[in-house]
């Protein structure tokens, strides 16, 4: 299980992040101030830290120094939209930053990107009789290899990493194809249809009216 430390003094925001990360299959812990965060990472190891900048006792930049000492990748959470602060954080060695207010999908995507960069995502994903090895990018169903295009493979990974989550068409488009979603094309729908057919997931990938799709477990 991947462990994430959330350092945030605003209790509602800390709970919000925890709730969503837990649902996405991560294990989470909350530190309400900088000092506690510094103490916790001395005692236990974490795979990632989400770090607020304006914190009581020790500020985010100071906590970042502690995190670097024990090799924990850090994503800054910042309410200050100022470029300087972002640059300062990144220069000091943060992996990424998320500006408040943020979309949950954005939060999860950035968490996953950083984890992948550190190869801390689970390399072996299993769903029903489907097995995915992210290292060799191979998909097996019932012991037989399935031939998927790159986009279909990315789409499958997205569904498996967001089980039970309603994925908006724009979210799907942006994370698989990249770029701005125009809202007109049928690309997303066509690819989802093909993926359902290839893997026999008609029962599990449900279309949500006017929204997108959800992988039901």
């Amino acid at each position: 299980m991947i462990k994430i430390l959330i350092v945030e003094d605003e209790e509602p925001i800390a709970n919000l992040i925890r709730m969503n990360l837990v649902k996405a299959g991560y294990q989470c812990e909350i530190a309400p101030d900088g000092e506690e965060a510094a103490n916790i990472i001395q005692e236990r190891t974490f795979d990632l830290m989400l770090l607020d900048i304006m914190l009581p006792k020790l500020n985010g930049y100071e906590v970042l120094e502690y995190a670097k000492a024990v090799d924990i990748p850090v994503i800054f959470l910042t309410a200050m939209g100022e470029t300087q602060q972002k640059v300062k954080g990144l220069k000091m060695g943060a992996e990424d930053y998320i500006a408040k207010p943020f979309d949950i999908a954005e939060l999860l995507a950035r968490v996953e990107t950083v984890l992948r960069r550190y190869q801390k995502t689970e390399r072996h994903l299993v769903f029903l009789d489907i097995e995915i090895d992210t290292d060799s990018r191979t998909v097996m169903q019932g012991g037989h290899p399935v031939d998927l295009t790159t986009k279909e493979y990315e789409l499958l990974l997205l569904f498996l990493r967001n089980k039970n989550r309603a994925l908006y068409r724009e979210t799907i488009y942006e994370s698989v194809w990249g770029g701005e979603y125009s809202g007109r094309g049928r690309t997303v729908d066509l690819h989802v249809q093909r993926l359902k057919k290839k893997l026999g997931l008609e029962e599990h990938i449900a279309a949500i009216y006017k929204v997108g799709y959800r992988l039901i477990v």
Binding site: E10, P12, I17, A79, K100, P101, A105, A166
Partner: peptide, 20 residues
């Protein structure tokens, strides 16, 4: 800053509710 903090919670929880 004061505005962003409650806004983050409101947008985040609403987003969670509509997706999950």
């Amino acid at each position: 800053h004061e505005l962003k903090t409650p806004l983050t919670s409101i947008i985040g929880y609403a987003d969670t509710m509509r997706q999950m």
